[in-house]
Simulated assay, not measured.
Amino acid sequence: MVANHLDRRTMLAALVAFAAASDSAFAEDFIDLEWTDLVPEGQPAIPPVIQGLIQHDGPSLSSQQPPSQGVRTDWNGQIVRLPGFIVPVDYSGTGVTAFILVPFVGACVHVPPPPANQLVFVTTAVPYESSGLFEPVNVIGMFGTASTSTQLADIAYALSADRIVPF
């Protein structure tokens, strides 16, 4: 009986050690992406153009979204890390559960959205307590191409977030 209990403790300790090693390996096991990586090779990355103030009572910003020049499928199904800014789409309590990850502050809200291949629709099971639109974050999770259309913009990529952390 004592030997059986000792074996269980040894097995439990081994499992805990394995889980800890797996978590630390996972913490470093992702591909770092930049926004330019999402644009197909040979296509120009369109930088944000801000010309004066936006008339919010004018045409919708989504109608001013430039066309996308295609997508890259290189990272479909891969765990990636991508920095950006949050444009909230859905909440649970006070946390954001779905948002558009954008490459620069104000995209989709104060200036016309960038092309679809410069936007990522992010979902998370654990609501993220965002401090606002101007907070840069790193999002780590499963990445892929997925055409999504919202009132704010057309989006070419999706990311199922495992972790969202301040940049």
Rank of each mutant, 00 (worst) to 15 (best):
M1K: 07
V2F: 14
N4S: 12
H5N: 05
L6K: 15
D7E: 12
D7L: 13
R9V: 04
M11V: 07
A13G: 09
A13T: 11
A13K: 14
A14V: 11
A14I: 06
V16A: 10
F18C: 10
F18E: 10
A21K: 06
S22M: 07
E28M: 01
E28I: 01
D29R: 01
F30Y: 06
D32I: 02
L33D: 03
E34P: 00
W35N: 02
W35F: 01
T36Y: 01
L38A: 03
P40C: 07
E41R: 10
Q43P: 00
A45N: 08
I46A: 04
P48K: 07
V49L: 09
V49W: 05
Q51K: 08
G52W: 01
Q55H: 11
H56M: 15
D57G: 11
G58S: 14
G58V: 10
P59E: 10
S62K: 10
Q64N: 07
Q64W: 00
Q65Y: 13
Q65V: 08
Q65L: 08
P66A: 07
P66C: 07
P67I: 04
G70Q: 05
D74N: 12
R81D: 01
L82P: 09
P83M: 05
F85C: 06
V87W: 13
P88C: 04
G93C: 04
V96S: 15
T97L: 14
T97C: 15
F99S: 13
P103H: 14
P103G: 02
G106C: 13
G106I: 14
A107N: 14
V109R: 13
V111R: 05
P112D: 05
P114K: 01
P115Y: 12
A116N: 06
Q118K: 03
L119S: 03
V120Q: 05
F121E: 10
F121R: 12
T124A: 04
A125I: 05
V126Y: 06
Y128K: 02
F134V: 12
E135A: 14
N138A: 11
N138Q: 15
I140Q: 12
M142I: 15
F143M: 02
F143P: 11
T145V: 15
S147A: 11
T148P: 07
T150K: 07
T150R: 09
L152H: 12
A153C: 10
A156D: 05
A158W: 01
A158C: 06
S160M: 05
S160K: 11
A161L: 02
R163K: 10
R163V: 05
I164H: 09
P166A: 00
F167Y: 03
